[in-house]
Design a protein around this nucleic acid. Sequence first.
DNA 1: TGCGAAACTGGCCGGGTGGCCAGGACAGAT
DNA 2: ATCTGTCCTGGCCACCCGGCCAGTTTCGCA
Lengths: 123, 123
Amino acid sequence: MSADKAPEIVLALEIDDPALADRLAALLGNIAGLRLAAPGEAATATILARDPRSMPEDIALTQRELDVLALMAEGASNKLIARQLGISVHTVKFHVGSLLDKLDATGRTDAVAHAARRGVIEL
Amino acid sequence: MSADKAPEIVLALEIDDPALADRLAALLGNIAGLRLAAPGEAATATILARDPRSMPEDIALTQRELDVLALMAEGASNKLIARQLGISVHTVKFHVGSLLDKLDATGRTDAVAHAARRGVIEL
DNA sequence: TGCGAAACTGGCCGGGTGGCCAGGACAGAT
DNA sequence: ATCTGTCCTGGCCACCCGGCCAGTTTCGCA
């Protein structure tokens, strides 16, 4: 039984408070059989401490923007979204532009990621 | 000394897998400045691990693909990824192509969404 | 009655994206 | 040695994307 698995536990940190995050990282940084996850790495478990005060309010997105966003998250192209919503590609681009602006994203992939992180959409 | 106002971090465990919970409890059980929460006690942070049964099997992605995927999830362009990893844009496209194939995605946005859904990456 | 917000549309264009072709280097397995 | 898989690179090209300009309509609210 001795030589069984030690499947190294990978912990992801999702902490709002930087000070707390640092302390935890320091405490957990060098424990045998345990490792902190690299950004984006899939983790065994997640340590999270959400600061309730840091939940401002949902970003104000219009209904149409939510429609477009949902289809974007499905990987739909502008052309497809246009057909789906019965509007022109130009209009889709218009809404996508607003989305990028409001979500502070550099592209549609970033926009979907940000929206998912903020709980605006569910993947 | 300076170790005065270290308000002892209290960790709550929300783990489906009992074996994992035990291992974590054992690892974290006796670390100075850190202690596990009693049932119902308010915790500084929570460690949670979703049910492992809900994860069929990880898609076989190479290390390089994971690198590219992580940067894609940050909204990085191929050019940026190339600079970041010190490889050419062509190579990035090559990996992105493999990613789209393995993740059954139609584009980079879809790929990131799929990867996040399957737990391959953490948003 | 005006006025702003939301939604919608068009043209234009530089740069990004993804698919296709081709190739080479290198490690490990058969 | 051959083969398989990963990683890396190039060129080419159709298409998509995002940002810029411009405009219209409709709606609710002051």
